[in-house]
Design a protein around this nucleic acid. Sequence first.
DNA 1: CGCGAGCTTGATGCCGATCAATGCATGTGG
DNA 2: CCACATGCATTGATCGGCATCAAGCTCGCG
Lengths: 274, 274
Amino acid sequence: MFTTQTTSTASDSALSESSCRGQTIMRGMSTNAPIKIEPFKVACSSCNLRELCLPVGLSKSNLDQLDNLVATRRTVSRGDTLFRTGDSFQSLYAVRTGFFKTCVSSEDGRDQVTGFQMAGELLGLDGISNDRHSCDAVALEDSQVCVIPYEQLEELSREFTDLQHQFHKIMSREIVRDHGVMLLLGSMRAEERLAAFLLNLTQRLQARGFSASSLVLRMTREEIGSYLGLKLETVSRTFSRFQDEGLLEVKQRQITILDQSGLERLVNSSNGAC
Amino acid sequence: MFTTQTTSTASDSALSESSCRGQTIMRGMSTNAPIKIEPFKVACSSCNLRELCLPVGLSKSNLDQLDNLVATRRTVSRGDTLFRTGDSFQSLYAVRTGFFKTCVSSEDGRDQVTGFQMAGELLGLDGISNDRHSCDAVALEDSQVCVIPYEQLEELSREFTDLQHQFHKIMSREIVRDHGVMLLLGSMRAEERLAAFLLNLTQRLQARGFSASSLVLRMTREEIGSYLGLKLETVSRTFSRFQDEGLLEVKQRQITILDQSGLERLVNSSNGAC
DNA sequence: CGCGAGCTTGATGCCGATCAATGCATGTGG
DNA sequence: CCACATGCATTGATCGGCATCAAGCTCGCG
């Protein structure tokens, strides 16, 4: 249960719910290359991410309404920001293709990656509280997002109970995910953190039709470290140790999981195997 | 900005907004004893917490509607739980009097305090995602909460834009708060964590009419440690160090802040004074 | 080819954990 | 009222995990 929730993001815990039909989205493959980009104007109702995204569980008629709401897309190239701390908040964004990180920073320049978002996950929920964004969202690879004008989402969700409820669930899920990350940061050791992180990533990738055992990291060791509260050297060393122990094969960012249950054991035992 | 947000809870960041009129609630006093309990049947519209709680910014007519919604109270004595992980989710709770902690735990028994909630703050948002609670809420002193049936809240917020918006803000604020805690857990040292914690606590107490410089901790060193990702000995030692340095006076749980700006400096400098 | 960003690996040191003893406040029962 | 138990806090001594500092290494790319 922990490994399935720790680092789940805005919408990825949908995975563990009955609505999980991820396997229909894309055939298993050995690398998590971006999902093919639809020619143009893909409606929510026919989007292959609809079972992982905001539309989960919506009826046909609600979906059609949502299609009107989510009219525009935006392309963000690798390294660019979708929004920044302080930007005025207008819209939420659903990742269509690509990969993002979000980070907060304190006045004195420290910063912390608060999450990684992949296809079907929502970005921007932080902005509702203040009408300003309170974190940066940066594309880690060329990406495309669906723009969801927030005012209109509120309007529509006043009309459609299901949409309202689904939206609330997504926000709540983000809160639960954050609590899982707090647990990780507050009480786990480096090995446990990294193991939990990898298991969470593969689980989310798997729900999107990718292999459960092979993945390409889209982020640097430093970004992983920032997320996990570790230094990049520690992340690197821990990868190496996992490799030595036969848990993983690590070739730069190409990771192959050799012993999944070994990783799971790591996460679920207070200290080692005793 | 960090010190005002780090550990803010569901509704306490309302403080930093324009709606902050906390000073009308209760005159400054030297100890944070529970706010006096109203005789009976206090409506939201006449509650002295309405500027810190769900009703923030609601019009008179909306408030009256809310009064119908929030009909019941519940008393929780010190040490008892308001809800537990796994309990089915029916309602949110607004703290009327008293003090709570929330904690999550992993399968292997580790647990982590995810927040402390005081009067006017909301509990239970975690339950929306799954229809089950995913953390425990424990009263740290004899407390009373207002019960907010969730179904009815959704219903009402479909009708009243302001309520809907306010509710969304509260959820978003919790997400932002959680990100602040991640920053704290991921990148701050023991002294900085404790300083940030104390500043946040006093700020929230101050908004409720209590002294900005004197407080009684309602939680043990161990609970503080769990929240901050430290061991109780470290918390205790750090308190002692603060006392030696003239920042605080510490007498068990009675804390007096002698040098607030000293604490602030601690939080806002990457490493010491260099 | 050579540069640079990112990754690995080693040596060392420090912060906070751990283990252990003592102190202090509150409560209970003889 | 005192003796004792209990829960919580303080303080010291020691240890260990991760940070830090410092080289090299790898790979992609101009």
